[in-house]
Amino acid sequence: MQTPMKRVRGLGSAKSGTEHFWMQRLTALALIPLGLWFVYSIVTLAGADHDSVVAWMRHPVRATLLALFAATAFYHSKLGLQVVFEDYVHTGWLKFTALILNNFIHVLLGAAAVISVLRVAFGD
């Protein structure tokens, strides 16, 4: 039964309500400008050597946008692949394993990406 309180909190039987749906849209919205900027940046970096890439990445605004792009993209990717696993993997333990690995790998890759950007930005 839907009590008024339940409706207000927006939580259904899954207890997390519309969080997945909402975060997928919110990250999508953020990735419109961040994604365009990223592709533009990659094009300007085409053929650049290591020193030029480092010099480019050390700029605080670029480092900020790059770290935000990576973090948002990995969050969005995690949510998207989660739905793919939920839709196509029907064996209980395999689905469970896939969903846990999906979380771990995305956090791992996202953290490595952000920390690498920060390492270059704050580097010697």
């Binding site: 290591h50 890439v53 480092v54 990445m57 790059l66 990576a70 993209a73 990995f74 990717s77 998207g80 692949l81 793919v84 890759l109 996202g110 490595a112 990406a113 920390i115 690498s116 950007v117 390492r119 270059v120 580097g123």
Partner: peptide
């Protein structure tokens, strides 16, 4: 939309490899 999303996720792996490589040099 779903297929390209999967391709982009694979590409994200390459993005991390590239960023880590830039940091290590």
């Amino acid at each position: 939309h779903r297929a390209t999303g999967i391709v982009l996720s694979v590409g994200a792996l390459l993005l991390t490899c590239w960023l880590v490589a830039v940091a290590i040099g």
